[in-house]
Structure formats: structure tokens, C-alpha cells
Nucleic acid binder design. Structure first.
Lengths: 65, 65
DNA sequence: TAAAAATGTAAAGTTTTATTTACTTTTAGA
DNA sequence: TCTAAAAGTAAATAAAACTTTACATTTTTA
């Protein structure tokens, strides 16, 4: 699993802390997701995708099959 | 959060056990998701959406804002 | 270049997802 | 209608998401 959170966050010119607050999670959660430390819930993924105006499938990409 | 897993599973004429096996999770996990008992990981959501040939956003719907 | 802001990291603790086992109830087929 | 498959439920456990706190490092900006 890789994701475009860091890039899309940069596009919106938001800090990890700002994004975290917007999404109702901790800054460390954002950091961990950006570093592929974990696999967020679909709810959080949906909220992020909506904020970034991207489909979940483009924001989070499963490596292989 | 609601979801269309039960409906889409019916469209593919699969049992909970078959779907579970296909996705590499337990039958109870499928059951719990169908009953909105929990919020799956984005990875599992992506696998389901791909199997059902639907965007994650259509398979899993956040209730409000 | 010094200070402040942002990011990285880490550890302990909580909550929730997911597994396993087992049993009951419902549904479908012979 | 009897039977078997499927689905519902539940509880104990394991694993992972997420929180909180705290501090170090990097980047930005005054």
C-alpha cells in the first residue's frame, strides 16, 4: 500500500496538524499514514479522499494483486 | 456508515464464506461489515470494491458530514 | 542565524478491527 | 418435511489503528 496523502496535502498547503484537525484525528495518525505505518479505516480514507477531491482508489493504491 | 456489501455479494451469488475466502478474511469479518459492526481497513475496502467492480465511494457510504 | 514552526520518531496506553471457535436460527434443496 | 447449507450471534483472544505525551531533527521565516 502506498498513498498520495503527503503530495495532496502539499497541494492544499496544509500541515500535518491542520489536516489532522480537519479530519478529526491526531497528527501522529497522519504521519503514520504518510509513512505507510498503517492502513487507515475506510471512513478516514473516504474523508481524506473527499477533502482532496480524489477517488479513494487514486489516493490509496494497493501494491500488487 | 452503511455499505452495499450484502447486495453486491448477492449479485455475485456468493456466500459470506466464499467472499471471506476470496478476500482473505474470516466469515465473521464479512458478517460484521455487512451488519455495520465495524469499519474495515481501506485495503479491505479496496479489495471488495475491485471485486464488486464499484468505486469505494459507492460501496461504503458515510452517513452525513 | 536565531527562533519558530513543521516534521520525524518512539513508547505506553486505549479502542477497534479481525480471528477463532462454537452454537443457534434461518433459508434452500432433495 | 427433513436435511444441509448459510447466516446470525456471541465470547475470548490477537492484532492493528489511533491517542497522548514527549522530545529530537529538519525546515521555514523573521
Amino acid at each position: 500500500m502506498k498513498n498520495l496523502v503527503k503530495v495532496e496535502r502539499a497541494r492544499l498547503d496544509m500541515t500535518q496538524a491542520e489536516l489532522a484537525k480537519e479530519l478529526g484525528v491526531s497528527r501522529q495518525t497522519i504521519h503514520a499514514i504518510e509513512k505507510d505505518k498503517f492502513n487507515p479505516s475506510v471512513t478516514l480514507a473516504l474523508k481524506m479522499a473527499r477533502l482532496f477531491n480524489l477517488p479513494v482508489e487514486e489516493l490509496f493504491i494497493i501494491d500488487e494483486d
